[in-house]
Design a protein around this nucleic acid. Structure first.
Ligand code: MN
Ligand code: MN
Ligand code: ZN
Ligand code: ZN
Lengths: 142, 142
DNA sequence: TTTGCTATTGCCAACATTTGCAAGCAGCGT
DNA sequence: ACGCTGCTTGCAAATGTTGGCAATAGCAAA
């Protein structure tokens, strides 16, 4: 059994008055089973395979909800559409290279000095989930 | 005269093979004269007052160009549209409160420890212009 | 000037995402 | 079982932004 068992999503939803519908379940699974960051359109066509009645708006609305519940995170790598990631896969941020397009993960620990400073100097509690930083990567810096 | 005179935009453009057209001039002025962060649509209707032939696509394309030349910066405060800011008004980032919607400026010095760390640990040269950080502001933290 | 090259524009259609609305469904009290 | 209420969905339309394309305008060489 998983010692770090989080509250299961259905429970988390109903606690706040929401319902765990088949659509939401399937969308959540799609994000969870994705090997990489997945887009709304990709989720849509994947889930549509088993439930052809699904509407794209429902995908967007569900992702918005899951994002607010911190079950998924959203990232914009500048490709004109946004991508999603299961929150269970740990917190991290992204470095996107503006030259070669490479995307790399950064541990969120790198940001603690920043959030501490924002908290100390501005009394601002930063909500830094899945931040995307643009710049030039190691390879392109050579 | 201005001791810190930057190269004038027209010069900067032509150096790179671009042209300073009336449209570009008017759009640049609109961003420059704005007291606050201005949206594409706002620029459009403002410039249209003096030049009714202008097309919205031109506004977007011009802003994209000016952004690449670092004459303007772009920020997304999460209102569903993006806003622009003249680069001459100094570098800074933004703290957006998720509770009250308040937007505050942060000096970019707050981010030097972060960029240093990204440079040292990842050899990644971060391009942090006009970053937007979401969270909870001082007022809402009380 | 005239010509030629290419950057730029307007127009329109596509795209990613959000919204309004009316129908459907779950839960709850009667 | 019935009806109320509020959550959820599909559908279609709207929104903000980008892209293709053909016509035009700016610039420089001839
Ligand atoms: Mn990620
Ligand atoms: Mn600004
Ligand atoms: Zn790179
Ligand atoms: Zn606030």
């Amino acid at each position: 059994m998983d010692k770090h068992q989080h509250k299961d999503p259905a429970e988390k939803l109903s606690e706040l008055g929401y319902r765990m519908t088949p659509q939401r379940m399937m969308i959540l699974n799609a994000v969870h089973n994705a090997t990489d960051h997945i887009s709304a359109e990709e989720i849509y066509s994947q889930v549509r395979g088993q439930y052809s009645h699904l509407n794209l708006s429902t995908v967007y609305r569900t992702l918005e909800l899951l994002k607010n519940l911190k079950l998924v995170t959203e990232s914009d790598f500048g490709e004109g559409k946004v991508r999603y990631h299961s929150a269970e896969k740990g917190h991290h941020h992204h470095l996107v290279c503006q030259k070669c397009g490479d995307v790399n993960d950064v541990n969120e620990a790198v940001f603690t000095s920043l959030t501490d400073k924002l908290s100390g100097d501005y009394n601002f509690t930063a909500d830094l989930r899945h931040l995307t930083i643009f710049g030039q990567c190691a390879k392109c810096n050579k």
